Computed example of a mutant assay.
Amino acid sequence: MKFKFEKLNIWQKAMDFGEEMHSVAQSFPKSEIYNLSSQILRAGDSIALNIAEGSIFQSKKEFHKFLGYSIRSLAEVVTCLHKAKRRNYLNEETFIKHEAEAFHLMNMMIAFKKTID
């Protein structure tokens, strides 16, 4: 038996992306444990969590609201990636890879959100 959200491609991709951000955060210096590491971990996990939470509502309006939270969390992760790159915690290649994945996930979420109007 599966929950409805487990079948959603955006939830599956968000789960994978959150795990990637976990790995990224672990590579940051210990001095960032309560700052940038914590922020990227929470925002990265929040993407999938909000998709799951929103999917339980019968109301399209509520699901839209939670998809919006997921999209904002993804934007927060991208900002954390930029911060990490500026602080030289990520090289250019790693940054570009994760930013591209984030961009793809963002487009998937926006497209999905339009389908439930």
Results as ranks from 00 to 15, higher is better:
residue 37 S to E: 09
residue 37 S to I: 06
residue 37 S to R: 02
residue 38 S to C: 13
residue 39 Q to L: 12
residue 39 Q to K: 06
residue 39 Q to P: 13
residue 40 I to A: 00
residue 40 I to H: 02
residue 40 I to Q: 00
residue 40 I to K: 03
residue 40 I to C: 02
residue 41 L to D: 07
residue 41 L to Q: 02
residue 41 L to P: 13
residue 42 R to F: 07
residue 42 R to K: 10
residue 42 R to L: 06
residue 43 A to L: 06
residue 43 A to I: 00
residue 44 G to D: 04
residue 44 G to F: 01
residue 45 D to W: 14
residue 46 S to R: 03
residue 46 S to E: 04
residue 46 S to Q: 07
residue 46 S to C: 04
residue 47 I to P: 06
residue 47 I to D: 07
residue 47 I to S: 00
residue 47 I to G: 03
residue 47 I to W: 02
residue 48 A to D: 04
residue 48 A to H: 10
residue 49 L to R: 14
residue 49 L to N: 13
residue 49 L to D: 07
residue 49 L to C: 15
residue 49 L to V: 11
residue 49 L to M: 15
residue 49 L to E: 12
residue 50 N to S: 00
residue 50 N to W: 01
residue 51 I to C: 09
residue 51 I to N: 03
residue 52 A to N: 13
residue 52 A to V: 05
residue 52 A to P: 03
residue 52 A to I: 01
residue 53 E to C: 07
residue 53 E to G: 02
residue 53 E to A: 04
residue 54 G to M: 08
residue 55 S to H: 13
residue 55 S to T: 09
residue 55 S to I: 07
residue 55 S to K: 05
residue 55 S to W: 00
residue 56 I to S: 15
residue 56 I to W: 12
residue 56 I to P: 15
residue 57 F to L: 07
residue 57 F to M: 14
residue 58 Q to H: 08
residue 58 Q to N: 12
residue 59 S to L: 03
residue 60 K to N: 07
residue 60 K to T: 12
residue 60 K to C: 14
residue 61 K to Y: 08
residue 61 K to Q: 10
residue 62 E to I: 06
residue 63 F to W: 05
residue 63 F to A: 04
residue 64 H to E: 14
residue 64 H to I: 09
residue 65 K to V: 05
residue 65 K to I: 10
residue 65 K to P: 15
residue 66 F to V: 12
residue 66 F to D: 01
residue 66 F to I: 05
residue 66 F to W: 01
residue 66 F to P: 08
residue 67 L to H: 09
residue 67 L to R: 04
residue 68 G to K: 02
residue 69 Y to N: 03
residue 69 Y to G: 11
residue 69 Y to Q: 08
residue 69 Y to C: 10
residue 69 Y to P: 04
residue 69 Y to D: 06
residue 69 Y to T: 05
residue 71 I to M: 11
residue 71 I to G: 03
residue 71 I to E: 07
residue 72 R to E: 05
residue 72 R to W: 13
residue 72 R to P: 11
residue 73 S to D: 02
residue 74 L to E: 09
residue 74 L to M: 07
residue 74 L to I: 04
residue 74 L to W: 03
residue 74 L to T: 05
residue 74 L to P: 04
residue 75 A to W: 14
residue 75 A to D: 12
residue 75 A to S: 15
residue 75 A to G: 13
residue 78 V to W: 12
residue 78 V to Q: 13
residue 78 V to E: 10
residue 78 V to C: 12
residue 78 V to I: 08
residue 80 C to Q: 09
residue 80 C to N: 06
residue 80 C to L: 08
residue 80 C to S: 04
residue 80 C to K: 00
residue 81 L to T: 08
residue 81 L to S: 01
residue 81 L to G: 00
residue 82 H to R: 15
residue 82 H to G: 14
